[in-house]
Design a protein around this nucleic acid. Structure first.
Lengths: 193, 193
DNA sequence: GGTTAAATTGACGCTGCGTCATGGCCCGCT
DNA sequence: AGCGGGCCATGACGCAGCGTCAATTTAACC
């Protein structure tokens, strides 16, 4: 009958280390070869571990990738939440969201340019948060009421697509102002629900 | 010294047929297994041809996929061009573009839900056309002047993301009106160039 | 130190990849 | 109609990556 292994136990430690080793190797390999060309073998070869060990930690290349996206989302989400929490007007709400997102993406650079489905848990949670915050803003009268689902999707679409421009070198502040102006004026005339 | 083989020649005919056979098989296989899981072997197995033959027509799974996207773009582009050519106001321009795009995507249904880089020649040409049409519209005073690159990207982002909603069952007309209103009001307050 | 459970290892069988030598078929010419 | 040349389909081949699993090492606990 085993008690849950203590946090500081040797076993737990190397387990965490191995996981991190694999993730770090994956980051490098994906950046070098691109996600599509990279193989599980490439990742473990960039590691002192054996091929079998990989599968103790992840089921597939896809899952490592998801874990990496999750790590990112885990950094980004609080930033977005904070930025929006401080917003007192619709403009602040929108501008702060875009700005936080664009700065974050800008740091990743061209490397992170591949397109993916957005189905990792943390990312979905981020979407849900955005949607909730929009609903609250509408309830408070900060924004006029409109179809929240469509508005969320539109915001996301603009954010993702303009993020590409930012990665290609466009100025964050300029793009932020563009996106903010577009929505701030745009939501005024939306068909009401 | 060969003359270019006549169009009706037997050889040319089966070549065209084989190409079409492969593309059709690919359509089916991608729909069934999803692009990521499908293999070149799956495609040729869905065909009376031998594996080597595949490589006479396409270099990779990726290239077949691109050819399929190109076929789609080849249908969609004239529709968009026509819709926009008839536009006499900004509203008509924007609404017609979204409407044509959403109807097209709606027909594909959930099947075509995977996300891809948009780098096939025909698709890029479609982007370029959109951008040009916007520039012309601005020149004619139909739209206020703004950063064309950012505006194009924003339009594309909203179009792609809302298309997902349409595929999930949202009403085309409702979504079209939403997107149109968003941009029609939005472009009014954009930072001028 | 001995016992046991857990985690690591790499070899294994299998599947898909892209190539290439072979052979058949179409075409144009006589 | 028969011949010759070139084009293209064919499928076997060597190679690489996949995910598994029996054997082995390592850590934990007594």
């Amino acid at each position: 009958m085993d008690v849950k292994p203590s946090q500081g136990s040797r076993r737990e430690l190397t387990k965490t280390q191995n996981r991190e080793t694999i993730l770090e190797a994956a980051r490098v390999v994906f950046a070098q070869l691109g996600y599509a060309n990279a193989t599980v073998r490439d990742i473990i070869r960039a590691t002192p571990l054996a091929s079998g060990t990989f599968y103790n930690y992840f089921k597939s290349k896809e899952q490592v990738h998801q874990a990496l996206r999750d790590e990112e989302a885990l950094i980004l989400r609080p930033r977005l939440a904070r930025a929006r929490a401080e917003a007192r007007t619709a403009e602040e709400f929108i501008a702060a969201s875009f700005r936080a997102f664009f700065w974050f993406e800008a740091d990743k650079g061209e490397a992170g340019s591949e397109r993916f489905r957005l189905d990792s848990p943390e990312v979905l949670a981020g979407f849900a948060e955005l949607r909730q915050d929009i609903e609250r803003a509408m309830a408070r009268g900060l924004m006029p009421p409109a179809d929240v689902g469509l508005l969320t999707a539109a915001l996301a679409g603009v954010a993702f697509e303009l993020a590409e421009e930012v990665k290609r070198g466009a100025e964050v502040e300029k793009v932020t102002q563009f996106a903010t102006a577009l929505f701030l004026n745009g939501i005024g005339g939306l068909p009401s629900v």
